[in-house]
């Protein structure tokens, strides 16, 4: 118990390289570096054959085509075995008709769970909480979400974050609260007084010099 608490203190952080791994999955042995060049959503679930996780897996499978269009791969994880994962995804397909197209890590040793801070002993000493790590093509962590065991994740928010991050990278802009693709984006704040004054003449929609928005050109 003490060991788990101590080892979970060092959590990965946004902007840092994602911890490397080499793990058994439902699609063979995979390394983090196998995903280099693609966006990756690494997410953990508490356990196979549990109700909320089953609804989440179906929901992840439903957004999978949209993620593929955006160059994003999905990788699930729990501390169950490969055999358990296989039995569960087969059961999901048999009962609901939904095929789970992405690999799932069998983290029996908890190596990945501990490296990514997925076990929160206050919630469960043995199961991973519902984590989402969005990792960019350079394998830098760009977003971290944690949900408690009792709350299923919101797929719209995950898609929204992916769209926002990709928009930011492509256009060097930020995205405001509740932003959706197609909405106006936030122009980075100016660094000098001269830039602040020029900004007000550039046709942006400005509340003041530090908060200006613009429409992105449709491509």
């Amino acid at each position: 118990m003490e060991e788990v608490r101590e080892r979970t203190i060092s959590l990965p952080r946004i902007g840092e390289p994602a911890p490397a791994f080499e793990v058994a999955t439902t699609q063979g042995v995979l390394k983090l570096e196998d995903f280099k060049g693609a966006w990756l959503i690494l997410f953990s679930h508490p356990a196979d054959f549990t109700p909320v996780c089953t609804t989440e897996f179906i929901a992840f499978a439903e957004i999978y085509p949209e993620l593929q269009k955006r160059g994003v791969q999905l990788l699930g994880l729990s501390v169950d075995s490969v055999s358990s994962h296989i039995a569960w995804v087969r059961n999901i397909e048999e009962k609901t008709g939904v095929r789970i197209p992405f690999p799932i890590i069998a983290d029996l040793s908890k190596e990945v769970s501990l490296a990514y801070g997925m076990i929160h002993p206050g919630q469960s000493k043995t199961e991973t909480v519902r984590c989402v790590f969005i990792i960019d093509p350079n394998q830098i962590i760009r977003t971290i979400l944690y949900y408690p065991l009792t709350t299923g994740r919101n797929m719209d928010e995950i898609l929204r974050i992916i769209a926002a991050l990709q928009t930011t990278d492509k256009n060097a802009v930020a995205t405001p609260a509740n932003w959706r693709p197609g909405d106006m984006v936030v122009v980075p704040p100016p660094n000098t007084q001269e830039m602040a004054e020029e900004r007000l003449k550039q046709g942006y929609e400005c509340v003041d010099w530090y908060l200006c928005k613009k429409k992105l050109q449709a491509k």
Partner: peptide
């Protein structure tokens, strides 16, 4: 095949 699977498969 997805690129990650090809990389893993080539290693194997």
């Amino acid at each position: 095949l997805p690129l990650f699977r090809v990389r893993s498969g080539l290693r194997e």
